[in-house]
Design a protein around this nucleic acid. Sequence first.
DNA 1: TTGTAAGCGTTATCAA
DNA 2: TTGATAACGCTTACAA
Lengths: 370, 370
Amino acid sequence: MKTMGEGANGAPRRGAGRNGMAVPGVGLRDVAQAVGVSTATVSRAINRPEVVSVELRERIAAVIADLGWIPDGAARALTTGRSQTIGAVFPTLGLGDFPRAANAIQRHLLAQGYTLLLACSEYDPEQEFRQVRKFAERGVDGVILVGLAHHPDLVPFLQQRKLPFISSFVFDSARPGRCVGPDNHKALVRMTDYLAELGHVRFAVIAQETENNDRAGARLAGIRDALAMRGLAVRPQHLAIGTWTIEEGRKLFAQVMDTDPRPTAIVCGNAPLAVGAILEAAARGVRVPEDVSIVGYDDIEIMSHLPVPVTTVRVPGEEIGLRAARLILDLVGGREPDYPLESEAEIVVRASSGPPPGEGPASPRLHPAG
Amino acid sequence: MKTMGEGANGAPRRGAGRNGMAVPGVGLRDVAQAVGVSTATVSRAINRPEVVSVELRERIAAVIADLGWIPDGAARALTTGRSQTIGAVFPTLGLGDFPRAANAIQRHLLAQGYTLLLACSEYDPEQEFRQVRKFAERGVDGVILVGLAHHPDLVPFLQQRKLPFISSFVFDSARPGRCVGPDNHKALVRMTDYLAELGHVRFAVIAQETENNDRAGARLAGIRDALAMRGLAVRPQHLAIGTWTIEEGRKLFAQVMDTDPRPTAIVCGNAPLAVGAILEAAARGVRVPEDVSIVGYDDIEIMSHLPVPVTTVRVPGEEIGLRAARLILDLVGGREPDYPLESEAEIVVRASSGPPPGEGPASPRLHPAG
DNA sequence: TTGTAAGCGTTATCAA
DNA sequence: TTGATAACGCTTACAA
């Protein structure tokens, strides 16, 4: 068993350069050597500059730039126990506000010196869990999730490892401080109330599967609860569950419209479904909102540009992303958030919603799709 | 100076548990101790199982599962010099095929045990460079870029560090083996030829800024070259440059249509611009394709569902993502790719394109927008 | 303000 | 097939 002997002898410690990471062959030691100081000093110069004399600090900076040295994140993570890395798992990147939020998260993290690890669950809890495990392996300092419904082992896993995590795109007053987003239930209560006040009583819902999607579930519950307050309910044949494509929206729209009695208002659970519904209505010659009102969820750009602009719930994806990033960083840093975590989900009223057809002088209903 | 003394004495080496990474307090050593073997053996059991006796391998696996140990990526990266991590910088996640491709990359990387670091450049070369430097710091094993136009220092930076990198969403026969994607120039030559053969001679183009976007530049050049072959050119007032929103598409459509003579065919440089153009045409009562043909780029779902389905260039984003992932992994592993790197960009003809209005019996042109 | 040297949790090189 | 142990490149007490 021999001693470490490292600074002691200028031994055959490092040749021209091993590969390793950053710049092949240039490490902290080389910088230190070039400047003529110890590695500790160089390290301090980057991490706590105020503690190093100005003159030295500048000399060090010059050499670092000159050599093009970049600190090795792995080594740094190993010693500090922090990777300066946050993992986020989204259901998908191709839907609604997710890309916007991902972008915002990434931007804020970068500004704070953090890097985002991004993964998709494809609405599969197993896959989500797998991604999170991978993140843990990569040593992320925190995890951003979407929604509250996860693999049963996921939360215990995170807790056991003392990994801070938050849920985004949801707000649940029961879990303050760990959620950022809108209250999905409340948002759809409002939307439903809005339609009910317009006079609608026959509601149809076309939405995503709620199995592994608590947000979709909360929205559906919001509709039901708001209707129940008025003694109303969605007829079974007026409830159509599917995926999140325009194609699907067309299909489900057709499905709920081919019923008797027809609904007078259709609430769509996500943006593509709403787009599909609007487009299918146009294709079938169903007038919106004269024959039927259609409302959506998520105010993506197309919503306001369709031939019939769509009344929808505006979820501030950008804001949610920013707050999610701030919150997880605060949690990682052991700080208490002092900003609002619930995002207002605003109802944006556009041309696609109006009073039901039977309103006022009982006008004969058209059946252009028949 | 003292000796390492580690296995020698069961010294006060590790208490109940430091924080560090993975599971607080359980490391490779703990597993080894629990099984009653050396750390080396446990390490081998995970990395080269075939070299460890079956009996032992199983015992080790059991203990690992039991203790919930997850190898520390930082430590692993430090010793191996590989982080099992790939960085990708996209211009944005909210446009065309990027989300799809990102998704595909991520999926393939995960399947190979890699993790994706994702960042956005927002079409800013400075920001792209910054992101790449961050990646280098994190020790990524390879980098996926979009396009060929970058910050002048970017490629030298990558090369100096011997970091493998590829360009996606482009194909340039001059740089075989480092690009995956469609030949943007060729795609628009084809599209332009298609329109020219329909009889069009007055072309308008509404497209993105080409400053930091070689792909947009290549597409524009494709249009110009194809026209030049026929002795044609885009009139200055028929060239409108902007961003990538539906709103912008409407505006630019209006702009090029408010000219005299009007174009008979409008080529849009990206999907939102095309959507905007189609929608604005509808709003203005301009008939498509009777009054004007409109074609786009990127076959996102909405393209085929608009009131007038859009003729467009279908870029196989999923395929590009998958190939990008394979290619960068092959480069990292020192393998030669044996699969095609150029993706066919197919022209999908839909209702938005047809012969120019003046064709055949010189019919009087309508000016419904006037 | 700077230097010394002990780790951080793995992998990998020898030997056994 | 397994074990002992020296790195890996950095940060951080502790000393000076």
